[in-house]
Design a protein around this nucleic acid. Structure first.
Lengths: 121, 121
DNA sequence: CAGAATCCATAAAGATACTG
DNA sequence: CAGTATCTTTATGGATTCTG
């Protein structure tokens, strides 16, 4: 009786997926609290759980697990478990995740410009 | 003693703005529940409160007000109040909001591709 | 018309402790 | 190491009623 749905950021029961435009669908996939941060760090290559955790000092393990599982479920991240002791799990972006790269680039550029605007006023 | 902060999606106290990359900052600005949906509809020109509400049948007035105020606060949306009876308020994207257009375009494209991937598997 | 004010339910996030 | 489990807190969203 494993509980799965705790933090699935509701794609199924909310409006976004069903009736809204594709941008909203996309935003729901990548707009989660830690989603983009994780993707940013994975875009340069695979990372282990602990390595990723180090880059996100403020995230709890619990949240990281939940977010990574969601990302995996949404096929943005691939999770590979190595049957070793001590355990090793590696996370990497999928093809689809990689294709976010140009979008991340534009977001970064837009963010910089916008931050400037927010400041000079 | 007006209460302002009820739904400000926490830029100030959370990690995103302070330590993370610019993509995360940007995502926090546009990643809110209704944010992108609203932007999508405003990208073709200004709309009144009621008109926008019609395009988002599932949003409550309360949420729309909150989201629009947040958008305004973040300078993505400009709010113009006309001193008329009955009252008229128009919402439109700011320059900065308009500059999201190419990003929305890419998100749409990516979303379509990704949705296909999610289906064929 | 375009909201503001309340009250309330649920969902998401955090702290902490524990484990294969 | 890479998580789980549990509990608590906080955030988010909704229903309803009221108003300039």
């Amino acid at each position: 009786m494993t509980k799965i749905k705790e933090s699935s950021t509701n794609f199924e029961n909310k409006q976004a997926l069903s009736s809204e435009c594709m941008e909203v669908y996309a935003a729901n996939l990548i707009g989660g609290q830690w989603t983009l941060a994780i993707c940013c760090y994975l875009i340069n290559g695979k990372l282990r759980f602990g390595e990723l955790k180090k880059k996100l000092p403020n995230i709890t393990e619990r949240m990281m697990t939940l977010q990574l599982r969601k990302l995996e479920e949404n096929k943005l991240v691939k999770r590979t478990v190595y049957a070793e002791v001590p355990p090793r799990v590696e996370y990497e972006l999928t093809e689809s995740g990689q294709r976010l790269k140009p979008i991340l680039g534009m977001l970064e550029k837009w963010g910089k410009e916008h931050q400037l605007l927010m400041a000079t006023d």
